[in-house]
Each structure stands twice: as structure tokens, then as C-alpha cells.
């Protein structure tokens, strides 16, 4: 199989690391070679963070190059725009519709770009979800990342049963049911 390139982008502290762990375990379950590259340290303190996940028959470099991502999972609007140029032609973006103002915006030194969703929609295959609200409906805002993953599942050709098996293995035992529910909600949002 040709190597699949997935990027997870967001704001430090949003919990993107669980998402990449699920993807890594999934690729392993499917018998692929996989490499994952994460950001730790200072950038995790509210900075722009990106995780690369690559899987296929043989993966060499651990990062996704500009113009090569099959799917970008974006946890925040501005970050989707920031990493947009990593997407390959025909790639897809799954966007959690959340706005987190970066400090230059908070202090009035810069403006948060308007119309990000419309802009992206005009250029690529974009799926937007307010995962935070969906997660709150399920009773726990912290499972919002599983909703986003449920949407992204449509673009990665793993059977849903495998997703569920891997989620069960990856998330804390107490939260399995909730996470599986969240995954189903996300999955049903992409037609």
C-alpha cells in the first residue's frame, strides 16, 4: 500500500496525543509499518502543535511533507488554515469547529481571520463538526476528539470493527463505552 499521511493539528493542551495513539494502534492492528511524530515541551503550552502519522508497507521518514497529507484532522479553525498547504491535491480536512484566540489576537496585535470555513470549503473536501457541543450532549466534553476521529474514519479504509477494537484497547477502561458512542456519533456525521 502506498503510504498514507495523516496530520493532526491543534492547540497545545487540546489532547491531540490520544488521537495519534489510536491511529498508531490502528495501523499496527492492520499490519502496516507506521511512524508517528509528536511535539512535546514548550509548544504544548498553548502553542500551535502538529502530529504526523504515516502508515504503509514501509515508512521511512516520520514527518509529513508539505503537499503530501491525505487527511488533516484539525482541532481548531486557525490551525486548519495554518497547515492547509500540507494537504495533497484531493485530500480532505476534518475540522472541529472551535475558535481559540492566540495571544496576538487576545492582545489586539492581530486579527483572527474571518470566514475560514468558507475559504477552505471553496478549495478542498472539508467536513466540519462542532465536536465540543456533540461531546457535551454525550455528557463529557473530553471525548470530542473521538467524534472527530469517527469522521476521519471515512478516509482511512480500516473497517469500523477494527476502529472499535482499537479504541477499546487504547482508551481508559472506564471510558470505553463513552468513547465508542462518541466515535459512532462522528462516524454518522459524514455521509
Amino acid at each position: 500500500m502506498e503510504t498514507k499521511n495523516i496530520m493532526i493539528v491543534g492547540v497545545g493542551g487540546q489532547g491531540t496525543l490520544l488521537t495519534s495513539r489510536v491511529l498508531g494502534n490502528l495501523a499496527e492492528e492492520a499490519g502496516y509499518d507506521v511512524k508517528i511524530s509528536e511535539v512535546h515541551g514548550m509548544a504544548q503550552r498553548g502553542g500551535s502543535v502538529v502530529t504526523y502519522v504515516r502508515f504503509g508497507d514501509k515508512v521511512e521518514e516520520p514527518i509529513v511533507e508539505e503537499g503530501m497529507a491525505d487527511v488533516i484532522i484539525a482541532f481548531e479553525r486557525l490551525e486548519a488554515l495554518r497547515y492547509f498547504h500540507y494537504l495533497k491535491k484531493g485530500g480532505s480536512i476534518i475540522l472541529n469547529d472551535q475558535r481559540i484566540d492566540p495571544m496576538p489576537v487576545v492582545i489586539g496585535a492581530a486579527k483572527y481571520p474571518e470566514g475560514i470555513i468558507e475559504e477552505l470549503k471553496s478549495k478542498v473536501d472539508l467536513h466540519v463538526v462542532d465536536a465540543m457541543s456533540e461531546a457535551k450532549k454525550l455528557g463529557n466534553s473530553r471525548v470530542f476528539n473521538m467524534i472527530v476521529l469517527g469522521m476521519a474514519a471515512h478516509y482511512m479504509s480500516f473497517p469500523t470493527e477494527m476502529w472499535k477494537k482499537v479504541i477499546q484497547k487504547t482508551v481508559p477502561h472506564k471510558t470505553i463505552d463513552l468513547n465508542l458512542k462518541a466515535f459512532d456519533v462522528g462516524y454518522s456525521l459524514v455521509k
Partner: peptide, 18 residues
């Protein structure tokens, strides 16, 4: 030199105190 067009002049997101 593959043609890559990034959005420029986006507000940066430096790390901050939590």
C-alpha cells in the same frame, strides 16, 4: 520545487502560560 502555497500573514500562536 513543488508549488506550495501557504496562507501567509496568519496570526502566530506562540506558547503561553496556561
Amino acid at each position: 520545487n513543488p508549488e506550495i502555497v501557504a496562507y501567509d500573514k496568519l496570526p502566530g500562536r506562540p506558547p503561553i502560560l496556561c
